[in-house]
């Protein structure tokens, strides 16, 4: 059995995985990115010209106080929302104005998500939840199942594959969510407060797991958090205050 204490390398398919190479440009770069929400007739700026970049195979933390705009930035980086202004480039492609369909396809191919509330589909088993994103790929059911088992094994949940999300602990659910985010072998994993609902010990395990993923899968990881204890000294950090980047 593979656990966090006895990690096994992810069986990563180099031909179908992340498209970055060592000499490639940053995984993500954003220039003067802004986002304004309109509430009735009032315009509320959430981001005001934020710029920055996320290096390949790096873990980048986005931190800031509540309401600072870090979740907005994360949503833009994950192509869940469109910026009001500025330019966003992911994996060398300008994705600022992608259509809804193109953005969906891009997410399916290149971006994995880990949510604060795990967001597992309650009626599916642990294995089926991990298998779920692979429905977007032309894979046989058997291949999907094998791939899902492989990633569940890697996050140490091979014994729980037939359980429903409601039958496992919060930490285990988040590990399922991580396996689900990784199973399609994305170049970029975006995690929104992935430890907010977990205790300190489990939170550390989750961050360590994501860090190992980054190393072994050569994946860029962006973690939005207000828990500064998770941030290691060598981590890249984007600090957002009042919708703008703050100097570290």
């Amino acid at each position: 059995m593979n656990t966090l204490n006895d990690p096994q390398s992810f069986a990563y398919d180099q031909t179908a995985g992340p498209i970055l190479s060592a000499a490639a440009e940053p995984a993500v770069s954003f220039e003067n990115l802004s986002k304004t929400y309109r509430m009735d007739r009032i315009e509320v700026p959430a981001l005001r010209g934020v710029s920055g970049q996320i290096e390949r195979a790096d873990t980048t933390f986005i931190k800031g106080p509540s309401g600072s705009g870090k979740s907005t930035l994360l949503n833009l980086l994950g192509l869940l929302d469109r910026p009001t202004g500025g330019q966003l480039t992911i994996l060398g492609e300008d994705v600022t104005r992608l259509s809804d369909r193109a953005a969906a396809d891009f997410r399916a191919q290149h971006i994995g998500f880990v949510f604060q509330g795990f967001n597992l589909i309650p009626v599916l088993s642990v294995r089926e939840n991990v298998e779920f994103p692979l429905l977007n790929r032309k894979m046989s059911a058997a291949a999907r199942k094998d791939r899902a088992m492989e990633y569940l094994d890697a996050v140490g949940l091979s014994e729980f594959v037939d359980r429903r999300p409601g039958e496992i602990s919060g930490g285990q659910r988040q590990r399922v969510a991580i396996a689900r985010a990784l199973v399609s072998e994305p170049s970029l994993v975006i995690a929104d407060e992935p430890t907010a609902n977990l205790d300190t010990k489990t939170s550390r395990e989750i961050v360590d797991l994501m860090d190992r993923v980054r190393t072994e899968l050569n994946t860029s990881v962006v973690i939005c958090t207000h828990d500064t204890d998770l941030i290691t000294p060598d981590s890249s950090v984007i600090h957002i205050i009042d919708g703008q980047t703050a100097k570290e």
Binding site: A104, A108, I111, F113, F115, N119
Partner: peptide, 14 residues
């Protein structure tokens, strides 16, 4: 609704 958002975030089309 949250499940719908998750599915869409995972890259599934409308």
């Amino acid at each position: 609704v949250k499940e719908i958002g998750t599915i869409r975030a995972l890259g599934f089309r409308k």
